[in-house]
Nucleic acid binder design. Sequence first.
DNA 1: TATGAATGAGTCTTCATTCAT
DNA 2: CATGAATGAAGACTCATTCAT
Lengths: 154, 154, 154, 154
Amino acid sequence: MSKISKRANISKGLIYNYFESKWGLINPVIHSGLSVMKCVFDSNGKDEVKEDDFEFIIEQLFLTLQENRHFWKLYFSIIMKSGIQNIVAEPIEQYLEPFIIKITEYYTKKGMKNPMENALVFGAMLDGISMNYILHPEMFPLEKIKKILINKFK
Amino acid sequence: MSKISKRANISKGLIYNYFESKWGLINPVIHSGLSVMKCVFDSNGKDEVKEDDFEFIIEQLFLTLQENRHFWKLYFSIIMKSGIQNIVAEPIEQYLEPFIIKITEYYTKKGMKNPMENALVFGAMLDGISMNYILHPEMFPLEKIKKILINKFK
Amino acid sequence: MSKISKRANISKGLIYNYFESKWGLINPVIHSGLSVMKCVFDSNGKDEVKEDDFEFIIEQLFLTLQENRHFWKLYFSIIMKSGIQNIVAEPIEQYLEPFIIKITEYYTKKGMKNPMENALVFGAMLDGISMNYILHPEMFPLEKIKKILINKFK
Amino acid sequence: MSKISKRANISKGLIYNYFESKWGLINPVIHSGLSVMKCVFDSNGKDEVKEDDFEFIIEQLFLTLQENRHFWKLYFSIIMKSGIQNIVAEPIEQYLEPFIIKITEYYTKKGMKNPMENALVFGAMLDGISMNYILHPEMFPLEKIKKILINKFK
DNA sequence: TATGAATGAGTCTTCATTCAT
DNA sequence: CATGAATGAAGACTCATTCAT
């Protein structure tokens, strides 16, 4: 909190006028991140995911990570330091579950076997890709990765 | 360290008879985890990854995570709390880089386009899957997931 | 630090608002002491020590010790507890060496044999006197001691 | 205590068979040092200090410091770390007071003014010389220093 | 006589939080 | 609104001492 107040050129006390606690300050960061992600995964605007949305979603994901790398570094470091399993896991799942459900429906409609497992694998892969991309963006060139992902998961 | 000693029903001081420091206690956990993972990814015993190894590697990964869930929960929580980017990132990469290289070679031999990017995506996906599996093993039934992965990445 | 904060009726943490560390708290005490001593030994203001300065220096030394006994008790106890030979020895010597050199020059001009050794003995004696004076000031009456020292070392 | 037991190639516990506590181990070191010093200052064997004894005492002091530098370094460091004013001051004075008294008597017989103060200055100077000698023996050549001291204090 | 595993009070230091101003 | 001095619980780590063997 000290460092934050210094970086913000305000007093430590003032932070507590606006936020109840450190967690009260950090929590919105997580939720804001999750909200943006929800938007990304929801970016087609429809309730249903269609073939063309796949490309769009993946592209959006990378663009979002790319445009605001500092934020996402912060976001992941908060999530990781707080130790996933505890306080953070639940809201993450609340945000992302609908996405998994939508993908599951999509795979179901495509007549794919084990649609839910496929959706979960897709979700897990986006997790992994995101984290790795934040750490080494230069190794994940958008266009190539997009093609690979579309090819594999569409 | 206090919590650990309490949990272990020993005094704080005793830990320091066996470990030089907090890091000296945690470090082996990380390296032991990484070693096991290296073994998993190396389990075919050959320098080269062949078609059949894919199934084996994926299977081994899940079995390993499954057999020792407590350990891997601890392992991931340590890695995450230490905030990936700092002290832990380097050894992780040292351990895992050879694997990525081997997979890249495999894809190259298969004549696949962008073999390295494919290998990186495969690696990132295993990251994501592992973490998600630790949190919700019941959602990732081995046989089904294995088939999906083999189908997509073989 | 605990004891200091209790004695000062403040919290442990508050000390760290004003001082970086224990050493950051203690160091200025030592240097302040050394500075004052340097002034004492330099109090004639000239680069050269003359006959009359001797009396002045000795008098100043005792006055300084006398005026601020608490401080000098603290000063000596810090110097001693930190075990002279380590961190403290060097700055002490840096501060006091010029004085020894000046006295050496003084003795040289007086045509005394072994001027440096005489200067060192003079310095060592002031050390001894100072420490003993701090412990038992009542046994070292200024006027009498001054006469003795002037008689012996002038 | 750990370091001591390791250096002595025995177990920590064994030390406590022979010494009640850390202080019980260190205390004899101090008293042994003081005893030796008492012997030095008493080395003429008589109750009374004569002119010729002066040279002898000073010589003995340096020889003693010289012969066993390691011991005296330890001795001074113990005395200093324990912070003179507390536990150590009293025994030191008990040991050394008789010496001061004897020197006082000597100066009295010589018809010197302020014999006690002269004795105290002599004592203080030996303190100072001893400490400085331990730190920088090369700067205090025995013969020269002896002459200086005899010349000044005899 | 001898060991060293075990203890726990103590060390310095950090940091989220409070509160008088 | 805004400050920053002040707090105190908690952090990692040390070390003299004890005790079962």
